[in-house]
Simulated scan of single mutants.
Amino acid sequence: SREDGVLDSNDRLLEDVDRNIVEDVTKFLFQPPDAPRGSGFDLVALNIQRGRDHGLPPYTKFRNFCGLRPLTGFNDVEALGPFVAELGNVYESVDDIDLFTGLLHEPATNDTGIVGPTLACLLVTQFSHLKSGDRFFFDTSKEEFGFTDDQLANIRETTLASVMCENLRIPQLPENVFIQASNKNNKLVNCRKLKGTLDLRLFRE
């Protein structure tokens, strides 16, 4: 809630990261500028409905998949935080809790940053599968699809700035295009000095 937030460097109130979702996406999502107030969509409701439409198992099934202990009931504060009892007013059983609802409620731990253990597990699993399931992922160890050691070394030395300079009509770019240009730490460099990092001779058969 706004009362529990903290002030940023400009004395603006920042809301805590918790189970509550800001009204911008629970009341005004995709609301046209000239539409009556409150006629937008609710992202939370949409996510829950999409989970049901696609047949996602309940939250407890994913806890089991991630090797976490079963829920003890609607009093399981350790697993689902201090407001877990409120879920008992909505669901008949803990096995009915929608995945998105459970993920919003579970408190973060020191090991999982700002998300709870189940969501951390699912994020790691998903990104791991995206990498390992792609036979063309650039550092795959499969020789029939992967790059040679020399090719990999050259790819890792190549920056996005050099690729952009090679292919776009840009006079200058910061060496690290993922960070705002700065005269102190990330100066703009003439593109002529950034070109040619990727050695295409290494990729000719």
Rank of each mutant, 00 (worst) to 15 (best):
S1G: 04
S1W: 00
G5V: 15
N10T: 03
E15K: 08
R19I: 04
N20P: 00
N20C: 07
V22R: 12
V22H: 10
V25N: 02
T26L: 00
K27Q: 14
L29V: 00
F30W: 07
P32A: 06
P33F: 11
D34R: 13
A35Y: 07
P36Y: 05
P36I: 04
P36S: 02
P36Q: 02
G38Q: 01
S39L: 01
G40E: 12
D42G: 01
D42Y: 03
D42S: 02
D42I: 00
L43T: 00
Q49K: 11
R50V: 03
G51F: 00
R52N: 03
H54P: 01
G55W: 07
G55A: 07
L56W: 03
P57K: 15
P57H: 06
P57T: 05
F62K: 12
F62C: 09
R63K: 15
N64V: 05
F65Y: 12
G73R: 05
N75A: 14
A79L: 03
L80D: 06
G81S: 05
P82S: 13
P82T: 07
A85E: 14
A85C: 08
E86P: 03
G88L: 07
G88S: 06
V90A: 15
V90Y: 10
Y91E: 11
E92M: 10
V94M: 01
D96Q: 05
D96C: 08
G102S: 02
T109V: 09
T109A: 08
N110P: 01
D111V: 06
T118V: 15
L119V: 01
L122R: 11
V124Y: 09
V124D: 12
T125I: 09
T125W: 09
Q126T: 08
F127E: 14
S128A: 15
H129R: 06
L130A: 13
K131I: 11
D134H: 01
F136R: 14
F136P: 01
D139Y: 03
G146Q: 14
T148K: 13
D149M: 09
A153R: 12
A153S: 12
N154S: 09
E157V: 05
E157H: 09
T158S: 15
T158I: 09
T158V: 11
T159L: 11
T159W: 07
T159K: 12
L160D: 04
S162P: 10
E166Q: 10
L168G: 06
I170F: 02
Q172R: 13
Q172I: 05
L173H: 10
P174S: 08
V177C: 06
I179E: 14
I179P: 10
Q180E: 14
S182M: 08
N183A: 12
N186L: 11
N190W: 11
C191I: 00
K193L: 14
L194D: 01
L194A: 05
G196R: 15
T197C: 07
L198D: 04
L198T: 00
L198N: 04
D199Y: 02
L200A: 15
L200P: 00
R201C: 11
R201Q: 15
F203E: 03
R204V: 14
E205A: 15
E205F: 13
